[in-house]
């Protein structure tokens, strides 16, 4: 794999950093990242991963852009209202960097599709919005041996960590073995 001249110029500030360099930039170009959620977390996450030159980006979400999303889900514009979030996010990312490949999955992640999907990627990024999906992602990432970069939000409070049991680290269930009972989840 190599960089073309446009890419060399685009990523030149990276290429001159010892922490990245040509080797690092090629690693980014070879990388395949699957992100779950194209909302508040997925917007900046996807835009950043796209800009930085991740080779292949998968985006899973089944929601459509709603008026009440616009104030925080910055990848979606007012003109995207009613469109699938995966399409809106894809277009925003590609507008900034058309060198990357984006696979959209306009569907709810479930037991039937998760394993096959995860197999195609190197790293999973969880920006989902419910416990069912978070435990599904954790278990599937464990079974497919993929590192999971997990972020979640409640009001003004965020939690971020990496689960990588394959390299000896903890998983989501090590941290929280069970979700809260539904009656205790604030509406």
């Amino acid at each position: 794999m190599t960089l073309n001249n446009e890419e060399i110029s685009r990523y030149s500030r990276h290429l001159t950093l010892p922490e990245v360099g040509m080797g690092g930039q090629l690693k980014l170009k070879e990388a395949k990242i699957l992100m779950v959620g194209a909302g508040g977390l997925g917007s900046p996450l996807g835009m950043y991963l796209g800009a930085v030159g991740i080779g292949k980006l998968g985006i899973v979400d089944f929601d459509v852009v709603d008026h009440t999303n616009l104030h925080r889900q910055i990848a979606h514009a007012a003109s995207d209202e009613g469109r699938p979030k995966v399409h809106s996010l894809r277009d925003t990312i590609l507008a900034g960097n058309s060198n990357i490949e984006i696979d959209v999955h306009n569907t709810r992640l479930d037991r039937e599709n998760v394993m096959e999907l995860f197999e195609q990627y190197d790293v999973i990024a969880d920006g989902s919005d419910n416990f069912e999906t978070r435990y599904l992602i954790n278990d599937a990432a464990y079974f497919t041996k993929k590192p999971l970069v997990s972020a979640s939000i409640f009001r003004f409070h965020g939690q971020i960590t990496i689960f990588d049991p394959d390299s000896g680290g903890p998983c989501y269930r090590c941290l929280y073995s069970e979700p809260p009972p539904a009656a205790l989840v604030p509406s």
Binding site: D126, D129, F131, I153, F154, P179
Partner: peptide
């Protein structure tokens, strides 16, 4: 005290 939170969007 750190509770589990699930949101990706709030």
């Amino acid at each position: 005290i750190v509770p589990s939170v699930a949101g990706g969007f709030q």
